[in-house]
Design a protein around this nucleic acid. Sequence first.
DNA 1: CGCTGTGAATACTTTCACAGCT
DNA 2: AGCTGTGAAAGTATTCACAGCG
Lengths: 224, 224
Amino acid sequence: MTARTPDSARDIPEATVARLPVYLRALTGLAEDGTTTCSSEELAATAGVNSAKLRKDLSYLGSYGTRGVGYDVEYLRYQIAREIGVTQDWPVVIVGIGNLGHALANYSGFRSRGFRVVALLDADPSRHDEVVAGLDVRSFEDLESIVAEHDVSIGVIATPAVAAHAVAERMVAAGITSILNFAPTVLSVPDGVDVRKVDLSIELQILAYHEQRKAVSPGSEDVS
Amino acid sequence: MTARTPDSARDIPEATVARLPVYLRALTGLAEDGTTTCSSEELAATAGVNSAKLRKDLSYLGSYGTRGVGYDVEYLRYQIAREIGVTQDWPVVIVGIGNLGHALANYSGFRSRGFRVVALLDADPSRHDEVVAGLDVRSFEDLESIVAEHDVSIGVIATPAVAAHAVAERMVAAGITSILNFAPTVLSVPDGVDVRKVDLSIELQILAYHEQRKAVSPGSEDVS
DNA sequence: CGCTGTGAATACTTTCACAGCT
DNA sequence: AGCTGTGAAAGTATTCACAGCG
């Protein structure tokens, strides 16, 4: 009621935000193995980071551990899920039902992590017969009504590059404020709209860069 | 021949390396539009970064611009491609030919950017009849011989999470030193092996985090 | 004169190391 | 005694702002 610090500590660094989902998954794994308590060391190992970083990251959320003991797996899992916002579930639309769109529609990891695909849209009428992952592929023209009906704020673009920008603009106009873009294009969107991109070939190129370096200097600096 | 600084300046910051492919794509786009010269400002806008960052990034590669003029699109494109290592082409194997593996195998962006998928492998024998993207799906048992035959150093894992770690170990044993992992698991690999991961649900969770924040404080701090 | 290339300043991230709680 | 939570230090990355070349 006093306007500041609405209900959780604000201002979590972006680098930390990007790791919270990793911790969440690690905790889910531990819980499935029947682990009820873990130290920062154990959780860090499971998540693939070092323990100092993990503790610093968690410190931005609050003090959810017990000194001398560690963290309660289930409790911490819930706190992180709440912080990320995946205790509620988020309706999502996917636009572009080619190979990648198919894969995304069928990806069970969305459903299990707080996301529900409410519609699959494609501009190509020849795809509108298809049923993918239990949903029928609908016309892109239906975007606005679907967004309004399900109160969608997250959209996924899996179209070819040329179509991506037009799709993004129409998503924004329809009220979507977060976009996950798989098309290899830079999207420019108004302030207040978040875009994250996943570019398969960029990841390979980064690997190629390092791979190339390995070939040049295998042992680095132990040469006389 | 003097052992130090083999032929290009070493030690490009990781953040810069991750943006080089973006610049490369931007330059390819400009070249296709018939642009032969561009300023850092123009290229930065096309790539979606600011111009100071772009210039700083390029400065790690060398001085490929002309003061008062800008960059020659084709020349800079080649220099970046060479730096990344995509002037040669890289043979790649994909393991796990489910929905995602299909999408990856068919992704034209690999071929056009210096990568050539030489084999598709799957542990499930019922998939071994299939032909995907012009390649037939082969047994995972063939990994070693394929890696040896094509001198493969980059592998892509698109299996379910449970299988990923075993696949990675076997890839490493077979001689692969760079792995792109789409399975939602932390892989631990020996030093000298690079792993990059793409996790679809993590990206959505990061969007959800910000989306949740928007809902709480729409206008941020302009409230009396 | 304009635009690149780059030191210097700032901002962000990671790591260290230990005080302080259980 | 042991492990969390955190200031302070070290390491990276980004941005500024301008000297210097074409």
